[in-house]
């Protein structure tokens, strides 16, 4: 192939690729995955979102949009009636995926993963919705925000951290903590912590009191998506941990309760969530 020919071919290819998103740019999008709904709005695809999941809370615009169910109970009739040309849903929703395929509606399948998977997902979603540049910018922004946090705490000693994301209220029963994979684990590590259950190759670990005592974390970070929890209940829930006074975190008064769904939804606010965790782990590094 001559250089001119090669140039022509690559030019034609570039034109074709550039034209691709325009051809498939969906005009009506439904997302039932809260993190990705949020990402759609952050990358500027918000005006084209015509339906969201029942548990979507962010951004505020979603409140006025039709709610079409969630992971377990998507309302397929309503979804199809909204005539979307792209539906963002979970990979485990096989029946719904097949149904949408039969209806000729394209889908974007969400797969749960770590921090980097989430950033890749945001970029892919940008390509699929014709918002590649803003999506890349969003992913870059989240990535650099997390890098900034990591750099800031890089020279701090790493405390041993237990990240709890579920527990029966008022008790230490059914405690769920992050294992060694997934975005929660990644956020702890990025925030300069050493996850005490990093060796367990699972996203979540159900713990007994004994394994918590044995793990002996220096800091306990407890996440709750219940943003409306009253201050009195927050104090009461933190106090529950004092039943296990041998835990270094309890003795040092380093049990933190972080409220907000940004901690449990890997979306655009992941950088904020990582920073909030880092501030709890390394308050000194954030003193101006």
């Amino acid at each position: 192939m001559t250089p001119v020919c090669r140039l022509l071919v690559s030019f034609a290819l570039a034109v074709w690729v550039a034209a691709l998103p325009a051809q498939t740019r969906p005009g009506r999008i439904i997302s039932i995955v809260p993190a990705l709904t949020e990402a759609l709005f952050s990358m500027g695809a918000g005006p084209r979102v015509v339906g969201v999941g029942s548990f979507d809370r962010h951004p505020a615009e979603v409140d006025s949009l039709p709610k079409v169910g969630g992971l377990i109970d998507p309302d397929m009739e309503q979804i199809i009636a909204l005539t979307p040309d792209l539906v963002v849903l979970y990979g485990s929703q096989e029946d719904q995926l097949a149904q949408l395929e039969r209806a000729g509606i394209s889908v974007f399948v969400y797969a749960h993963g770590g921090l980097n998977d989430t950033l890749a997902t945001i970029r892919e979603l940008g390509v699929r919705t014709g918002q590649r540049m803003p999506a890349d910018a969003l992913a870059d922004r989240i990535g650099s925000q997390i890098t900034r946090v990591s750099n800031r705490v890089a020279d701090q000693p790493k405390p041993r951290v237990m990240l709890v994301f579920g527990r029966e209220p008022g008790t230490l029963s059914n405690v769920y903590a992050s294992g060694g994979i997934g975005f929660l684990h990644d956020m702890v590590e990025a925030a300069g912590g050493d996850n005490v259950f990093a060796a367990v190759a699972r996203e979540s670990v159900q713990l007994s009191s004994e394994s918590i005592l044995t793990a002996a974390p220096d800091i306990i970070i407890e996440l709750s998506y219940d943003e409306r929890m009253t201050p009195a209940r927050q104090v009461a829930e933190r106090a529950v941990w004092s039943r296990l006074p041998a835990i270094p975190a309890v003795r040092a008064g380093r049990v933190h309760l972080l409220l907000g769904n940004e901690f449990v939804q890997p979306g655009p606010r992941m950088g904020d969530a990582t920073e909030a965790i880092a501030r709890a782990l390394h308050p000194k590094a954030f003193q101006e």
Binding site: G166, T171, S173, S209, L244
Partner: peptide, 24 residues
């Protein structure tokens, strides 16, 4: 359960499986 969100459903299902870890 249908009205509950995912985390709550999971908690509730877990409760049904029994747990004796009373820790007090």
């Amino acid at each position: 359960q249908y009205l509950a969100d995912f985390t709550q459903s999971f908690q509730a299902i877990r409760w049904v499986m029994g747990n004796l870890d009373v820790s007090s």
